[in-house]
Amino acid sequence: MSAIAIAAVSKVYAGGVKAVSDVDLDIADGEFIVLVGPSGCGKSTLLRMIAGLETISAGTVSIAGQVVNNVDPAARNIAMVFQNYALYPHMTVFDNLAYGLRNRGVPRAEIAARVAEAARMLEIEPFLTRKPKQLSGGQRQRVAMGRAIVRQPAAFLFDEPLSNLDAKLRVSMRGEIRQLQRRLGVTSVYVTHDQLEAMTLADRIVVLNGGRIEQVGKPLEVYHSPASTFVAGFIGSPAMNLATAEVSGGRLTIGGAELAEGLVGLADGRVTVGLRAEDVVPAAAGAPFAIRYVEELGSGRLVHGSVAGQHITMAISPDWPLADAMRVAVAAERLHVFDAATGRRIACP
């Protein structure tokens, strides 16, 4: 029973800026939720409201069935991992882990046992007597995680914990966080602007934009059926191609060039079409594709070009011969069709 319920929560800052508007989200016990979105989308504000570090302007946040709007952060039984780790610089690693327990009057022997357990789990035992500045970035990150674990909280809150690490360490820490969370089974809310982190960590992804939820869903759901052009452009790398297109009689054309056929159940008219780079394939009878430049990735090749003046990226095998005059097409079932005016997904066949 440590689910978190967020009901109609808004945050309005003193200057009248609305950082979060009317967010509803139910987080199940033990679930790993990732809040993802661009800078300023309100994801950190939402996390800080769950933590109690920001006041809630409207709506309610409940943890384990209890409304915590006016509960002190310390009494919410949550633990938070900060982007810059926020370790106490003058305390040893042991004291950093023990500080929160001491403040709660946990008996000395139990503190020692819990710290030892967390240190073993995170493999930071050799560093317990060191100060944070004697540790590397990855080790500090582990200490910050340890500080959260020893508390045995109802929920972990992560605020972009990996963004200060180098790329390689980020990947390995990502895996560790996932395994640790699985093992401990603690409800977790994780904020990141990195869609790859969101995809790999989350049980469910929450995509935020402008303080509102764009879409909530399992990573693959969000990837395969983005609810809006915003989600489509944000999740996945390279970003999904978005182009203005026409539908008429089951055929999809961009600037008169036919890209796909055999669409059913779509009304004729102007739409925004979303194409994953890997779904765009060379085809003898496709739309003319003018290559602008090519990015070699080793395992594949990203070909940037245009169809009728609209930018399209195509991911193909390096074995494909490139020609000046290529034609491309997309299978009808691979298309993502969005309303041209609202950007919302149109239920597709």
Partner: peptide
């Protein structure tokens, strides 16, 4: 950094305790 104060708040340190301990 502000996060130090926030971490202490979550760790259950009140204003005076944060002042004294950190």
């Amino acid at each position: 950094p502000d996060e130090l104060m926030e971490a202490a708040r979550i760790d259950g340190a009140g204003p005076l305790k944060f002042f004294r301990d950190v």
